[in-house]
């Protein structure tokens, strides 16, 4: 049913730390690998002249110029935010797109998807891509087939992107529990929503980059002020007069 649940028992989601993300694309690769093996996430013409494919996670890179100081490079992973008011769910004409009341994950029932693409239009975050060969909509499942699979070692029962991140920039947990690790992180670091004006109430949060230290003066500055003496001093004076 494409109506949103009135209540979720918990809200699983990701907290992404833009301070520690180095833009290595390991989460993109891990996501693609896991999902392609589990339920299919195809490419079109992967080794040809015009390769293209569906991905559930993309890492952008921005240059941000503060009012003072040097510009910063900020890497920015973008995937489904498992919104509380997910517009992709309510627009779906077939009921294929749904939000689970038990854990708040937004999923697609691929057998009922007609591939009309309206859910992708309704999403402000570009979280959904049509599979080029299966012609059904694909999206982040929070690796629902890992996090619920108790046959896996406990450390693997988290989304593939979180498991693989070499800098620990991705955190997974219950955002509806104010005591959870992810909620504490959001609280401590001022985690924020993307495009709150769209009214989607995203579950995933982004932690802003920490304020950069500013070097007031270069540690090498004293060296620039060395006064030449003797012959070099005389030469310096003479050349100064000529120029």
């Amino acid at each position: 049913m494409t109506s949103l649940p009135t209540h979720v028992e918990k809200q699983l989601g990701l907290v992404i730390d833009l301070d520690t993300c180095v833009g290595c694309q390991a989460c993109v690769t891990a996501c693609k690998g896991w999902n392609d093996h589990s339920h299919g996430l195809s490419d079109a013409d992967p080794y040809g002249a015009d390769p293209s494919g569906a991905f559930l996670n993309r890492v952008h890179s921005y240059s941000v110029q503060p009012a003072e100081g040097a510009a910063q490079t900020i890497n920015f992973p973008r995937s489904c935010l498992h919104c509380a008011d997910a517009p992709c769910v309510t627009v779906c004409p077939t009921g294929a797109s749904f939000k689970r009341s038990e854990d708040g994950i937004v999923l697609v029932n691929e057998a009922a998807c007609i591939g009309c693409g309206l859910c992708a239009w309704a999403c402000p975050y570009g979280a959904r891509e049509l599979d080029p060969t299966e012609k059904v909509m694909k999206k982040c499942t929070l690796c629902v087939d890992r996090i619920t699979d108790t046959s896996l070692p406990e450390e693997d029962q988290i989304p593939a992107c979180v498991r693989t991140c070499p800098t620990g920039a991705r955190h997974f947990g219950d955002l509806s529990d104010p005591e959870s690790k992810v909620s504490c992180l959001v609280e401590a670091r001022g985690g924020y929503d993307l495009m709150p004006g769209m009214g989607t109430k995203p579950s995933n949060k982004y932690l802003p980059p920490r304020k950069k230290d500013r070097l007031e003066t270069s540690p090498l500055a004293p060296l620039l002020d060395i006064q030449a003496t003797g012959f070099a001093g005389w030469l310096d004076k003479m050349l100064g007069k000529l120029s």
């Binding site: 240059s63 900020i74 402000p124 802003p208």
Partner: peptide, 23 residues
């Protein structure tokens, strides 16, 4: 606002996330 990075400064694209156009 799309990235929330407006809280730091003026945002512009540094590098695209993929080399070919996607869906």
């Amino acid at each position: 606002t799309a990235t929330g990075l407006d809280r730091i400064g003026a945002v512009k694209v540094f590098e695209q996330p993929h080399t070919q156009p996607n869906y």
